[in-house]
Computed example of a mutant assay.
Amino acid sequence: MYANKFSRLVLGVYSRKTAAVCRVVHSAAGRSGYSWTAVCKQRTLWLQRSACLKSQHTVPCHISARSASQTTVDPNEVRRFQSLANKWWDEQGEFAALHAMNDLRVPFIRDNLLNVHRTCHPGKPLRELRILDVGCGGGLLTEPLGRLGATVLGIDPVGDSIGTAQLHSSADPDLRDRVSYLACTLEELSAEEEGGEEEQGAGQFDAIVASEVVEHLADLETFAFCCSHVLKPGGSLFITTINKTNLSYALGIVVAEQLLRIVPSGTHDWEKFISPEELERLLESNGFSVQSVQGMLYNPVSGAWSWTNSTAINYALHAVKVRGDPHTEQAEESSSHPEDHTAATHS
């Protein structure tokens, strides 16, 4: 019953006015014990919090990849995924939607990389490219990228998930020389060069993939900084995540988690969702240029994903590293023109 109800909502959501959508969700929620007020509560709290933060004077925090006091890892998220570590390859289980997402995200990554690098390797189009899969889980995206010819390193802070990924990939001889895994964080990998491990250090990857990851991180500024650090100049960053809207809360959490149980309850925290505009500003401040943003839509009835013009719920983003550490460049520019800096200070 709920599946049919949700399907009608999804198919009509982009062609109806916002008010009509609100009425539909309100009606469905009322019959299921939820209220539209509850659905929007977190959104309202976030807007109030944002307004307070904007009114305060803040000092820029220049994060060092080596001695960052902040971390991308949220202990609560690690515990949650620890309990699911042995379920990654159950295509009908908790990660069924992620398995289905490969139909969109693998071609999205492949085609954009080919546009950037103009390589020609029939059968293995990503050959000679090094890709870092951040938050790889059980290797659901790592493996297909390896089969396309790329050398892929998957990292995840959940050791049991890495164990699952290693065990699964070991059964495929085609992946043994192309796919490897490490149980570590992005900031730990970023710091390895300064510890003497140049192989995995700064500027070593042609691309970074963070699919359905950023909405689980504790600090996106550290994430963006470290991504820039380990990418080669001209390297690509691919992100798929969830927008921060009332609709994403209603469908992504209330319906998907609490009603239809498409994903386990508590998987997502709406406060961690980020809009494409916010994500683009964050990446640009860390030396990236966003090339494309595309909306994604999941149909729980068919279990399939499709591209859409709306980014109101899920979206995919491709960005390219265009320069080095923006904080270092800013400091160098200020030191090279001290008189300008002094004049600006007195003005």
Rank of each mutant, 00 (worst) to 15 (best):
L282W: 05
L279Q: 05
D325Y: 01
V106F: 01
L148I: 07
E188M: 00
K272Y: 04
L114V: 03
V209I: 11
C40I: 15
I155N: 06
I253E: 11
L247S: 08
Q258G: 14
L182P: 05
D172T: 14
S83W: 03
H117F: 15
T185Y: 00
E188P: 00
S190T: 10
A68Q: 03
F223D: 07
R43M: 15
T222Y: 00
L114M: 06
E221R: 08
V290K: 05
V254I: 13
V59R: 13
K232M: 00
P60E: 06
T164K: 07
R110V: 08
V322P: 06
S27C: 10
E215T: 04
I262S: 07
L114T: 09
V255Q: 12
V214I: 09
L47S: 14
T151P: 05
A210F: 08
P338T: 04
P122I: 00
G154R: 07
P60Y: 11
G234K: 10
V13H: 08
G287C: 02
A319G: 10
V106D: 08
V214C: 11
T18A: 14
E77Y: 01
G303R: 04
S55M: 08
F81P: 01
Q166E: 09
S15E: 11
S248A: 14
E77N: 02
Q166G: 07
S302T: 15
S170H: 13
T151Y: 09
R261A: 06
E280M: 13
A191M: 04
E77D: 12
K54A: 14
V263K: 02
A38F: 12
K17M: 12
T18N: 12
L217M: 13
H346Q: 14
R105V: 15
